[in-house]
Structure formats: structure tokens, C-alpha cells
Design a protein around this nucleic acid. Structure first.
Lengths: 343, 343
DNA sequence: TTCCTTTACGCAATCGGTTGTTTTTAATTT
DNA sequence: AAATTAAAAACAACCGATTGCGTAAAGGAA
């Protein structure tokens, strides 16, 4: 541990009067090396403080045991849990994880794919930037047999692995739950096309649930947000509460919006859930802590990360480029809490 | 983009009838290459879809433009913001970031330092695992001139860079604020020695603030927690409220604890802040959303990440191993919100 | 003893840029 | 035109681990 130049297999070879190839093989328990030699080599390597240079191995073998993760930002509970799931799973198979944040910028995303490719990651897990319409910058991975998995915010019309939830069904279930609680005038917050089809699907589930149960769909109860933020939620809810016929329930496709709705209602003296039932989405930590607790749809970030990482790891090295890549759907559940429970 | 074997500088050299050294230099605007050649090379590289192999460059130069980040977990707001700050700063200088989670396990931390060293990271940023007492596994970085910066949870008696806040002063300021609001019986939650000196320092600030202002220090108002969780906070507060002489204020060294205190108080019909003023720590997102809003001490995660990354980047390559490494203190502020404001 | 297998290990090329040194070419000076 | 110098590009070693192929030694069969 005192050396100022890393110990290499050459150093070990010299010390033991063996060839580097023997050292290399011995360290990996190659069958053509005798047990005696293997033991001796490992012992010496340990003594000398040898640490393999993964760069050299990576260069030679053209594989790096590294997974690149490219996401909009890591400071969202959903995404940090996703990364956590990826990291834990990757590490079990001795993979490292490189993180990059696109901050929802298309340009950054493009540059980062280059950077990831440049560092010869073994696989890539990505949740698309909001700005991204064209996904041709991901072709370099497909073309070079590097597994590519999209999570949550996935592209359309591009044959790659995808790990997602069924947003349509989730939206349907959330709305159905409100209906079951007796809500008749259910509002919904959604987002424009630039957010991809994620929110669109949730909205479709919402609409179908309403019509399936004979409830009215009123345009004024459906508000398009430009950003899924607390403030945007407050503004939207104020608009809702100011309507001549205000809604008595809300399906918010994000917990932070649900929180804003609950708090805005409380400030107006509207009772939650009696006068206004709310269900959110994601099961962010805050939904459990806020009062009243917020009913929500689970969004299994950790599991999704784990699934994505496993797909990458299992796919590395297999040369089935032309095959159709499967889509993995993870289950969501309705978590009924105080904000919607009209017992 | 259609090639199934990456384009190398050899391919470019062959196409242009130049030596690979010329290509390599041209791509980096080396002065000994004519402008005409540089232009030609860059154009051809672009056309052929050349992407440099950072492994090869890293192997040769023994540097990788990669920063290793080793932290307990990324799913804490403070730590994910820290990483975010690191990532953004690193990227500006064209560095990549490798993330590893020790999950507060000493053994994992040791293995991960090996892994980071093995991949020849250019620098390391670390927040220590709770279990870690001995830090000799970090010597491999110091010995090999790899910049090492500890953040927030730093070791004692080890000459490395450190980026921290002044926990003593922060604890003092927080307590002082409660005193200014008229609190006379101020409680405190803290943690055992296994958490390092972070909480100890905050407690020291708390104690000094009390004695400086002639307020009593009562052991029963100081509760040692085994985990800094919501549930642990609830339990501790119930104990506090059950005392013959219950406290009228609380300095919680974490927002999640402050939240638990506020909610436990409310459930008991204790008015916050009138009967019980609370100040937390960290300025986690939740402190702003919960009702009442929670006063807190800012913990500039993003800035700390930025500072740490800058130290790493600035130090890479400079061979001043024997010099004393500076400690960077970042400022904290008291954010006065509803939970402590007795206007 | 000779021939044939195994077993155990060495040789040398390879991965793809980087860089110190040398050679070639072009430009400038006398 | 010859000599001097600067500019441009080539040569070749290098980083450290991996691996196909070759070979020597040891053991067994004929």
C-alpha cells in the first residue's frame, strides 16, 4: 500500500518468475493453471497490494462492467430510488454505475450518450429528457450491441427494452377508486404532449373510468399543466375551486400535485376527503407524512431499477440484435389513505 | 453510425494516409499540426462517426476523467442533491461520475474503494458510512496521488480535504433562535457516537447556547436516538411530552425528526409554535410543505457537491502530497418559518 | 524405450489512443 | 544554389491485462 506506482501483473510475474499470462489466468482460477501456482500467485498479489486495472482489461476485452444511467435529474424521489435499485443490482454482478443528468435537455442528452459510448459502457439505462423527440442518438448503442433499456419515460416506435408501468390501467384504477368513494365530479391534472405519452395514458385511463361508470367528462375539470410543480398545482386547484360546479374529487398524476391540492383545499375550508377526495401518484415519501395522508398509486422505482439492471446484465454479450425487445410491465397498486377514504 | 465495430483513429489514419499520431494530435488541436490537416481530420472523423475510446486514453495516460462518489445512500434529499451538485460541476469540466452506495456498511465501503481504485478514478468524493471507524482503506488514494475529498460525514485525524458545515455554530444558531423566540425549556434529539462527530457538534452548539443564555440543561430533555427516522422521532417526542416538566421547544438535528415532533405535538393538542416551538435541520423539501412549515437550518448540499468536485478537479495532477489539505466550511442559515415563529 | 496424452506454463499479439523522438518537407536566409 | 531553420508528419514505444497458440515436462500406454 506504500507504492507510488500501482502494482501490475508484470510485477507479480517478475517476483515469481512466471509469465504474465500465467498470473492473469491464475487470478481468475483458470483450469490450465495448477492449484499450487494459483495459490502462490494469489498470495503474492495480496501481499504486493495488487489491484487489477479495469481500464486495461476493458480495453482488451472491449467490455467494462459499467452501466450508464442517463436520467433527467436525480433529485426526484422516484429517480433517486430508481438509481438506487440499479446500483444495488449492478453491484451484485460486479458492475459499476455511471450517472448523468440530462436536466431534461435534448442537447445534453445527446452529448451524454456520446460520452457514455465513449467510455464504452456495457449497457445503458435511460429515462428520456422532456425535450427529446428524436431518439437517433441512441442508435449508436443498438448498432454496437450495447443493451439499451428505457425506463418510465420511454420512446415510441423504437425497438428497445422498456421497463414501465401500465399508466393507462393505473389512471383507470385511481379514478375508479374515487368513483368507488362516491365522487361524481372528478377532476384531473395532466400535461402537454411534450411530456411524452406517460401523462396521456393516465388521462386516458381517467377518461375511460369515467365513461365506463356513467360519469360526466367536463373539459373544465381537466387542466393542462406546463410543469408538474407544487405552485402549478396550487394555481390549477384554485381555478377548479372557483368553478360554478367545482369537482368533488381529483386524480393528480403526481404526489406533489396531490399535496398542493389538499393544502389548497384546506386553506379554502374545503374538507378532504369529505368534500374533496384526492388521489396522487408515485407514493413519494411526502404522501405518507402530510396530513391528511395522501392516497396514491405506487410507482415501484426500486423494482424498476432492479428490472432494468437485470435486463442489461442478462443481455450483455448475447448477440440477438434483430430480435424484438420485450417490454416489462411492473405492477402498480392503489394505496388508500386518508385523502380519499370516505369510510 | 452503421458500423458494427467502432471507428478508431487507425481507420481515420488509413483513410487519409496519415499516421495515427497525427490524427490524435489533430483532434486535440496540437500546435504541430497544420490547420489544413486539423480541419481535414476533424471532418473525416465526423463523417466516419469516430468516437474516442476513453479506455485507451485512460490506460495510456493513467487518468480517466472520472470522479468516484461513495456515499451511504442516494435516496436522501441531502445526498441526492450533493450528487447532483457534483455531477453538474464535474460535467462542466468533462468529468464523469461513478456512484456507489455503501448503505452505511463498512465492508461495502472497503470493497467499493477497491473497485474505484481499480477503475482508476481521477478523484474520489466520499461521505463516510456510519459503521466506519478505521479509514485506512482510503490510503490507496492518498498514496497514489488521487485527490480525496470527504463531505459532511468526515473522518477525524486524517489529513484530507474536507467539505463541511460548521455543525457547532449551526447548532448554536438553531438553539439561539428558539431562545430568541422565548423558549425556556429547550429539548434536543441527538445520536450516539457511532454517527461520528456531526451530531455531537450540533449538540455542543445547543449546550453552549443554553448556558450562554442562562437556560437550564436538563438531561431528560436530551434524547439519544439509535436511528434518525420518523418513528424514532415520534417515540422520543412522546417521551418528552410525558415528562413532568415538558419542554417548550425542540432543536431537532434533522427535518424528518422535526416533522415527527410537530405532528406528534399536534396529535396531543399541543400548539406549535405557541406551546412548543420546533426547528429542524437540512431544509429538506418536506420542511417547506408540511403544515406548519418547519423552521430549519440550511444544509447547502448542492454547494457542497460543487465545492467538493471543484477541489477534486483542481487538485488532479498537482503533486503536493505532503501539503496540508484544507477544510472548506460552507455557510448555514437559519430559515425561520411557522414552526418556531412566535411573532 | 518410444510414442502419445495431459498438464502447466510461456510467447507474443492485441485493444486504441498518446507522446517523446526522429525524419521528411517546406520555408527562409546567405 | 547551398545552408540553416522551422514546420509538419511519421516512427515506435507505451499503458496493463487478455488470450490463441505453441511448447516443454510429466505421466501413461504400448
Amino acid at each position: 500500500m506504500e507504492e507510488h506506482r500501482p502494482v501490475t501483473i508484470y510485477d507479480i510475474a517478475e517476483r515469481l518468475n512466471l509469465a504474465t499470462s500465467t498470473i492473469s489466468r491464475a487470478l481468475k482460477d483458470h483450469h490450465s493453471i495448477s492449484d499450487k501456482t494459483i495459490k502462490k500467485v494469489k498470495k503474492t498479489a495480496e501481499e504486493m497490494g495488487f489491484v487489477p486495472n479495469t481500464l486495461a482489461a476493458g480495453l482488451r476485452g472491449n467490455k467494462t462492467k459499467t452501466i450508464g444511467v442517463l436520467i433527467p435529474t436525480i433529485t426526484q424521489p422516484f429517480l433517486s430510488s430508481l438509481i438506487s435499485g440499479i446500483e444495488v443490482t449492478a453491484r451484485k454482478s460486479d458492475y459499476s454505475v455511471i450517472i448523468m443528468q440530462s436536466h431534461d435537455s435534448y442537447e445534453d442528452e445527446v452529448n451524454m450518450t456520446k460520452s457514455l459510448y465513449s467510455s464504452r459502457v456495457s449497457g445503458v439505462i435511460c429515462s428520456l429528457a422532456m425535450e427529446t423527440k428524436d431518439t437517433s442518438h441512441f442508435q449508436q448503442f443498438s448498432n454496437n450491441n450495447i443493451p439499451l433499456v428505457f425506463v418510465d419515460r420511454v420512446p415510441k416506435g423504437y425497438n428497445t427494452f422498456r421497463v414501465v408501468i401500465d399508466n393507462y390501467t393505473a389512471g383507470y384504477k385511481a379514478t375508479k377508486h374515487l368513483i368507488d368513494q362516491g365522487c361524481k365530479r372528478i377532476a384531473h391534472l395532466t400535461a402537454g404532449a411534450e411530456f411524452g405519452n406517460l401523462y396521456k395514458e393516465r388521462k386516458r385511463g381517467y377518461l375511460d373510468a369515467l365513461t365506463d361508470h356513467g360519469l360526466p367528462v367536463k373539459e373544465e375539470w381537466i387542466i393542462n399543466l406546463k410543469a408538474m410543480t407544487y405552485d402549478a398545482g396550487v394555481k390549477a386547484c384554485q381555478k377548479l375551486f372557483g368553478l360554478k360546479v367545482p369537482p368533488d374529487g381529483l386524480f393528480a398524476p403526481g404526489d406533489i400535485l396531490a399535496v398542493s391540492a389538499v393544502q389548497t383545499a384546506k386553506k379554502r375550508g374545503i374538507k378532504v376527503p369529505q368534500d374533496f377526495a384526492v388521489i396522487g401518484f408515485n407514493n413519494d415519501p411526502i404522501s405518507e407524512i402530510i396530513e391528511p395522508n395522501i392516497s396514491t398509486i405506487t410507482h415501484p422505482a426500486d423494482k424498476m431499477g432492479k428490472a432494468a439492471a437485470n435486463i442489461v446484465i442478462d443481455t450483455i454479450g448475447s448477440r440477438k440484435e434483430e430480435e424484438a425487445k420485450e417490454i416489462t410491465f411492473l405492477n402498480t397498486e392503489v394505496l388508500i389513505r386518508e385523502s380519499s377514504k370516505r369510510a
